[in-house]
């Protein structure tokens, strides 16, 4: 970001503000503009918006979406998408909470064993959904839309069935204290986990050959295959990773609300795809940067927070989010046209 904002202003000597805006838009996409507009609008609407305390809140509230969006990004990069992220999140929450509560009830002394096993089984339950998605997409050539839509229904049904629709209680206090409200060096635990995951994924995507292969498979599956890349395995990893990220977010969210819930995460598919698309991840696959997706998730968190402060009703917030998503896709198309006109 820093590097781009330095080079961009001195690049075009020709044209006025309009041309400069156009070039910035082509270079950075729609996100910086939306962020700027949102900042201005919400600071005007509420004086509490632009405070350090509130911005910290935004960060803390957006990490769950951010983690899910990182997984969603993997699916989009390979030219698919994952509609079952919400379900993976809910299922991990329910299974994790149930296992944790059960072990805690049997052995109240072994708090950390209960937490560890609970988290592990919760994440495993979520990953199972990714395994089915991945197998469907990679080995049976089913469209990602169908598999993940089907699995969203399956997972949601299982989560409801397991809990009977009732929230799961009885987890050790330490779980919520540590992963929900705890902090390390002044950084809230969920933020800490999200940062670790983002860094790990960054290294994986941009510093290892397999990371590059996700882009290659999304860019041109046939070319990737003829270049000696195992495209089936790559697609399989994609959906497993996507579900893994959703499941981790599920466990963190469980710690935050201190209950296992089958109904959390319903808005995650839309919000995570929106975060990615606003951040410039191409729906055609092969294009998108992790840093931008992190910003995209923060942006959505910022919008939600700003609308809360401005006392906009939650029903209307859904409307705004949908509109933003569509705007982002339109903006992406316009940008492609500009790119063509500038490059030709």
């Amino acid at each position: 970001m820093a590097e781009q904002s330095v080079t961009a202003p001195n690049a075009p000597a020709i044209g006025g503000i309009g041309n400069l805006t156009k070039r910035l838009f082509v270079k950075l996409g729609i996100l910086p503009f939306l962020l700027f507009i949102a900042m201005v609008v919400f600071s005007l609407l509420s004086e509490n918006f632009l405070t350090l305390q509130n911005l910290m809140n935004v960060l803390r509230q957006s990490v769950y979406l951010m983690i899910v969006a990182l997984g969603q990004m993997m699916a989009l990069l390979t030219g698919g998408f994952d509609l079952s992220v919400g379900t993976a999140l809910a299922l991990s929450s329910v299974v994790g909470a149930m296992v944790m509560a059960a072990i805690f009830a049997i052995a109240p002394d072994m708090v950390w064993l209960a937490i560890a096993l609970g988290c592990l089984s919760g994440i495993l339950a979520g990953v199972t959904i990714g395994i089915v998605n991945g197998a469907g997409v990679a080995f049976f050539n089913v469209s990602p839309f169908m598999v993940s839509l089907g699995m969203a229904s399956v997972g949601f049904g299982v989560a409801l069935y397991l809990t009977g629709g009732v929230p799961v209680y009885g987890m050790p206090r330490a779980f919520s204290d540590t992963f929900g409200y705890g902090a390390l060096l002044g950084i809230p635990a969920p933020v800490f986990v999200a940062a670790l995951l983002a860094i790990a994924l960054y290294v994986f995507l941009y510093r290892t050959p397999q990371g590059r292969y996700f882009y290659a498979v999304g860019g041109n599956p046939k070319a990737a295959s003829l270049s000696g890349i195992n495209t089936k395995a790559t697609l399989f990893y994609t959906y497993v990773l996507s579900a893994f990220f959703a499941a981790v977010a599920g466990m963190l969210l469980t710690a935050r609300i201190d209950t296992g819930e089958a109904n959390i995460g319903a808005s995650m598919p839309l919000e995570s795809i929106a975060a990615c698309v606003i951040a410039g991840v191409s729906l055609r696959g092969g294009v998108g940067r992790l840093e931008s997706v992190v910003l995209g998730a923060l942006f959505i968190g910022l919008i939600q927070n700003g609308m809360n402060l401005a006392q906009i009703e939650s029903y209307l917030q859904t409307v705004v989010l949908g509109i933003l998503l569509i705007l982002a896709v339109i903006a992406d198309q316009i940008r492609l046209r500009y790119v063509a006109s500038l490059k030709n």
Binding site: P209, A216, A223, S227, G228, R284, G286
Partner: peptide
């Protein structure tokens, strides 16, 4: 392959990534 657009290259990626693709290991 014969069809560079559909079977050979990732059109939206850089030259660097396209050249290195088969030898990243």
């Amino acid at each position: 392959p014969a069809d560079r657009r559909h079977e050979g290259l990732m059109m939206m990626r850089s030259v660097r990534e396209n050249v290195a693709l088969a030898s990243l290991d």
